[in-house]
Design a protein around this nucleic acid. Sequence first.
DNA 1: CTGTTAGCGCTTTCAA
DNA 2: TTGAAAGCGCTAACAG
Lengths: 333, 333
Amino acid sequence: MAATIKDIKAETGLGLATISKFLNGGNVRAENRVKIEEAIKKLDYHPNETARSLVTKRTKTIGFVVNNISISFSGVLLQHASAYLHSRGYGMMICDSNCDKKQEEENIRFCVEKQVDGILITPTGKDADFLQPAEKAGIPVVLLDREVRSDHFDCVTIDNRNAAERAAHDLIKRGHRRIAMIHSEEYTGRERYEGYLAAMEKAGLKVLPEYIYAGEMHSPELGYESMKKLLSLKERPTAVLSSNYEVSLGVIMAIHESDIRCPEDVSLIGFDELILPMVLNPKLTVVAQPMEEIASEGVRILLKRIEEGKGVPPQRVSLYAALKDGDSVRNVG
Amino acid sequence: MAATIKDIKAETGLGLATISKFLNGGNVRAENRVKIEEAIKKLDYHPNETARSLVTKRTKTIGFVVNNISISFSGVLLQHASAYLHSRGYGMMICDSNCDKKQEEENIRFCVEKQVDGILITPTGKDADFLQPAEKAGIPVVLLDREVRSDHFDCVTIDNRNAAERAAHDLIKRGHRRIAMIHSEEYTGRERYEGYLAAMEKAGLKVLPEYIYAGEMHSPELGYESMKKLLSLKERPTAVLSSNYEVSLGVIMAIHESDIRCPEDVSLIGFDELILPMVLNPKLTVVAQPMEEIASEGVRILLKRIEEGKGVPPQRVSLYAALKDGDSVRNVG
DNA sequence: CTGTTAGCGCTTTCAA
DNA sequence: TTGAAAGCGCTAACAG
């Protein structure tokens, strides 16, 4: 049996309260502190977090409900979030929604049941109803990367629409007119598409239906298949905007397989500054999402909410995603 | 305040023990069962898992200590493990070791502190010392994908050495003599390299140092840079074995950028049947690790250990990884 | 600063 | 079957 606080009491002859106070960083007479420290070492005592939770009503665990754990973006976000959380003594329970609303709803319930102190989530859609159990249970929720139709929750995103608009604008500025876009109908993919539309419209450019490929989800296949088709057009686009990392991978593969060259024959801008497209020739020009900041801001806001309560109204933090030049875009005309 | 079992008692007039028994699936008179069910619905009662844990000494949470959460393999493994665990009512707390032994050691301690019921781990190395805190605390550990130098733990792997040997043998059987290998010095990469060596030796083939590229970790850069160099050799290999998914991606990119074709000019076999290399032309021939089985077997063994104790000696399950033909290998000579 | 006391919400003897 | 009571290990008043 593991040692308990009572064993420390027996060992030191002190009262439970004193020991508990010490454990929680309170002031104790130097002499007693030494006694307690020695007893702890001797008995290899570790506080029972469960017992502690029962009385403090804090589990020191947060739930991370991730829309799709198997994409690279999630891995990186999880990595950063987990690191921050651990450094603050919090554990991270992950629940994969696998891009499924039913599963996501279930995940929220699971988190509530497990009594996490807070929830970090990359939601699958814009609908906010499924978050109700958490709200009802008084568990703070911070949305990461995506917003929902509700102003009850804190939220850390990048301005996808604006970022995509800047990317498309950059292509236009460099003389491109025939610009294609490959995007998913998923959340962020949709927003990025809207940004593209805005840039095209402002420049007075026509959006050709044969230049638009929309898939259900972000995936390499989407990029690969779409790009194959774009390359087979009689009048090929001179530039392509790809709405996320997975999609870009597929696009690059398709280009490589053809005898079309990038950027000589076709320019390309992608999203997400993940490793692979950065080591390639040409280095991909991307809209770089500040992943670490998204994670750290999200964690910071969540912990603040947990520790200081619901005083302040929900915040919406929108981080800036810079367009980072690579070598995959050329000037035309 | 959330409803407690006492509220149910007040509502139904029954004793706490009866209600508790009902909650845990025990036999209760039909009439009382109805009463309790109604009260639960009316008060929206949910058992407090923390209180339950305090007395049962079970947190219904397992820790997953992952060597590197940002690689695709981890995402897929986590996805399956999480699904199985959830279906059994268990939560999954993840701890990323980020390929760092110090971090890994810290993660184990963190899990012990958090009193998880069991640990699933893809270890960073072969050394087993860091698992001691878990062992001392009586927390069962199941190793996934990789073994360590200790026979105290259950373990689910594929036979990497044998699988790589079969892959290399397949190349040899198809007439290849100049076979290169790109691998990491990480755990599985090393084992796969040994399998390659075994196949070459059995076939009486020389292993040329200029055909071997070893990197510290599995990464696309490793594959990309190594393949670039291999392709620039005066006497190029006719086939390349790549030790994991990330590495293969890099290799494919390098081939695409050159004017060498696969499989006409160079054959390629990779590891891990993940999506991208499957949608490409040519479809990559791979050693397919049974990811879902690794996860489900691991979870099954762990939960059994948790629920039925340490009676049986540690098991080592070695799953078969089949070589799946794609179109990236051609017959020569 | 210290110790006593009362719970946190639940499960589990044990006797009825 | 049921219920009263004890207690899991800890924190949080409160009195000293």
